[in-house]
């Protein structure tokens, strides 16, 4: 019990560092997508700093777990995790979106060390995950493939085509994660394109569905281990989150889907994150 508490506390502290880097790099770039990066931070911190089998010194290690950021616009959170995990210097983050940077506006696996896929056009990542999971099965490897999607992204038909494929091939080694922050680009998901209930939909497609609070580290860790137990069904973690989580003026504000951050806003964000909003 004590061990778990220590682990959770450590990951929560780590998540704060990730959030600060997200803010810092988007402020430096003067563009980027803070809202969905911050809503996914606790989930990605759990994956990159605990759950996934990785070796930053050997990024191409064949047996590593794979992560696909299907909602590619939220790359700041992945870039931050990779830097803090030691794939490249943290200073690199300040070159986000800049001319000739290794950190492109949307994930480019040929430019950024540690990325497992190239994404940025919504709806495509889960199919990549299905392919990777199939490849693992064919090659008799035991790595897991994780795919993070947005709740707005669930509108894309390709996701549901992938959903069927994963069930057909009983891809228990595939774990999908929906960052259900309730907002897409133009407004609330339930007004732009209602998809409720996502948990129900995924279950009806034959997936094992685990619904959690995407900011509760204990729940996240439990869900991730539970997902791995079901060996003949793919799992979908439907995570209730807050867009802009951790920065008071960004939380649940649709305009912070993307945007530039001023120096004053950056300072306030750091204070909020430190305090734990």
């Amino acid at each position: 019990m004590k061990e778990i508490t220590g682990l959770v506390k450590g990951l929560e502290d780590q998540a704060k560092l990730v959030r600060k880097e997200i803010i810092r790099m988007i402020a430096a770039a003067q563009s980027g997508h803070p809202g969905g990066s911050l809503s996914a931070t606790d989930l990605l911190t759990a994956l990159y700093f605990h759950e996934m089998k990785l070796d930053p010194k050997n990024p191409d290690w064949e047996d590593r777990d794979r992560f696909i950021l299907s909602k590619g616009h939220c790359c700041p959170v992945v870039y931050a995790c990779l830097a803090l995990r030691g794939y490249y210097p943290v200073d690199t983050l300040l070159t986000l979106r800049a001319f000739e940077s290794t950190l492109q506006g949307h994930p480019d696996m040929r430019k950024t060390v540690g990325l497992d896929a190239t994404t940025g056009s919504l709806g495509q990542g889960l199919s990549l995950g299905v392919g990777l999971a199939l490849a693992a099965k064919l090659a008799k490897k035991d790595y897991f493939s994780y795919v993070l999607m947005g709740d707005g992204e669930q509108n894309e038909g390709q996701i549901w085509e992938a959903a069927c494929t994963a069930v057909k091939y009983q891809l228990g080694n595939l774990v999908g994660i929906v960052d259900q922050n309730g907002l897409q680009n133009d407004g609330p998901t339930d007004t732009i394109m209602p998809m409720e209930s996502l948990a129900y939909r995924w279950r009806s497609f034959g997936w094992q569905v685990i619904e959690i609070d995407g900011h509760n580290m204990t729940e996240i860790l439990h869900a991730l281990s539970l997902a791995k137990c079901n060996t003949d069904k793919p799992s979908m973690l439907v995570c209730n989150t807050i867009k802009g989580k951790g920065v008071s003026y960004m939380e649940n504000v649709v305009e912070w889907h993307s945007g530039a951050i001023s120096d004053a806003q950056m300072e306030q964000a750091f204070a909020d994150i430190e305090r734990g909003v």
Binding site: L122, G123, G152, E153, N155, E156, G157, Q184, N185, D186, I192, M193
Partner: peptide, 30 residues
């Protein structure tokens, strides 16, 4: 629109003519 009306600058149109504006979410084929 496909969930980028803010970027496409069609928000004003949607306000002025709500009955003529359809936002179909992130699903371009549909």
């Amino acid at each position: 629109d496909g969930d980028i009306s803010r970027s496409m600058q069609t928000v004003e149109f949607g306000k002025e003519y709500p009955d003529r504006h359809l936002n179909l979410g992130i699903a371009e084929q549909n």
